Amino acid sequence: MRKWIVFLILIGSLLGLVGCTEKTTAGKESEQKNRVTEQEKKLEEQKASEAAKKAAAEAEAKRIAEEEAKKPKVINVVDPSTKNIVKSFIPVEMGFGTDNERYRQELEKWARELARGTDTTPGYDTKMVLDKIDANGQVTKGKPRVILEEAELVTNVIEASANGGEVFLPIYVNESGYKPEDAAYLSEVVVATYSTKFNPSITGRNKNIELSAQAIDNVIVGIGDIFSFNHTVGPSDAAHGYQPAQEIVNKELVMGIGGGICQTSSTLFNAVDKLAVEYVEWHHHSLTVGYVPLGRDATVSYGGKDFQFKNTAGVPFLIKTIYNSNGTFTVEVRTSAAFQSLLQKR
């Protein structure tokens, strides 16, 4: 009997243990499910927070964009070489969108002053200083021609006016149109020449012819180069050695410093006129001069009238001057033998 009682008690204990094990396993599964649920909630909360932040950022960006859109657009005109801002302006304040014609006119006036300069401010445009051959046969370098394209600048600014931003100055630099290796041969062949006479006894006037002749001697005029008499010779004043002599002013002969240099410019004109050059600037005297035929003169005055021509003859050439104190002055145009057949004449 006792054996059965002990056996039943043992069986009951084992069943109890099984029940505890099942309860323990079920508890663990429940805790694991709770943890998964909490993680899912945290992920959902994190996603919601990120979405809220994104929405807030987008709203802020939209607000800023709307505020920027309301602000007037600004144009910054920049010098491409220095990267400095040359001018900043607001297009709408100058008539853009309300009076576009006035806006264009304002821009054209500003671009013209910027390119050509004013009474107080130099412009971007600079004439070319042509290269010369010195007494030793070496090339003395001048300076390139610099041009600020006014029309292109105005167009670029107008195109940028709706949205604002940077506009770079359209500046073009033109070097002389010849090859350095050709310089040594440009004096080989005389392709045009012209001579004038002067009175050897008029020393002041003759000295002025001599000085201006020296200034243009051995100047290289490359293809497409523009020769400016005033820019090449410079001021014909006492500081540069020029002397008093008669000159024509308003149809009258008067004494002035530098009188006589027009004989140099006129002799040069008659020489280069035999070539297919293009005249950029050319003026006649108000009175007839005796050293060239009627209508064949070229008057000049530093700071005023100039004699300018562009080399459209197809090849580079050299200007040579020959001053003889006995009363003759000659200008020769020379080029290399290799270029002679390519040179275009009138």
Rank of each mutant, 00 (worst) to 15 (best):
R2M: 11
K3M: 12
L8D: 11
L8C: 14
L10N: 02
I11V: 14
V18F: 13
E22S: 11
E22T: 11
K28D: 12
E38P: 07
L43A: 15
Q46S: 15
S49V: 08
A51F: 05
K53S: 14
A57C: 05
A57V: 07
A61D: 11
K70I: 02
K70H: 03
K70W: 02
K73D: 06
V92G: 04
F96D: 12
G97W: 04
D99W: 09
E101N: 14
R102F: 14
A111V: 04
R112F: 07
T121K: 14
T121H: 13
P122G: 04
K132C: 07
A135R: 13
A135D: 13
K141F: 08
G142K: 08
P144W: 12
I147M: 10
E149I: 09
A151C: 10
E152I: 09
E152A: 14
V157F: 05
S161L: 02
S161P: 01
L169V: 02
V173Q: 04
V173T: 07
Y178S: 06
E181N: 13
S187P: 05
S187H: 13
V189C: 08
A192D: 02
T193H: 07
Y194S: 10
N199V: 05
N199K: 07
N199E: 09
P200W: 12
R205T: 00
N206P: 01
K207F: 00
N208Y: 00
I209Q: 00
S212Y: 00
I216M: 01
I220P: 00
G224H: 01
S228V: 00
F229V: 02
H231G: 03
T232Q: 01
T232Y: 01
P235C: 01
D237K: 00
A239T: 04
G241T: 01
Q246H: 12
E247T: 03
V249D: 02
N250D: 12
V254F: 07
I257M: 08
G259F: 02
I261E: 09
Y279G: 03
V280K: 08
W282S: 14
H284D: 13
L287D: 09
L287T: 09
G290D: 13
Y291M: 06
P293K: 11
L294H: 13
L294V: 13
G295L: 09
G295R: 08
R296P: 07
A298E: 10
T299L: 04
F307K: 01
F307G: 05
N311D: 04
N311P: 03
N326L: 08
G327N: 06
G327A: 07
V331Q: 09
E332K: 15
F339Q: 06
L342A: 15
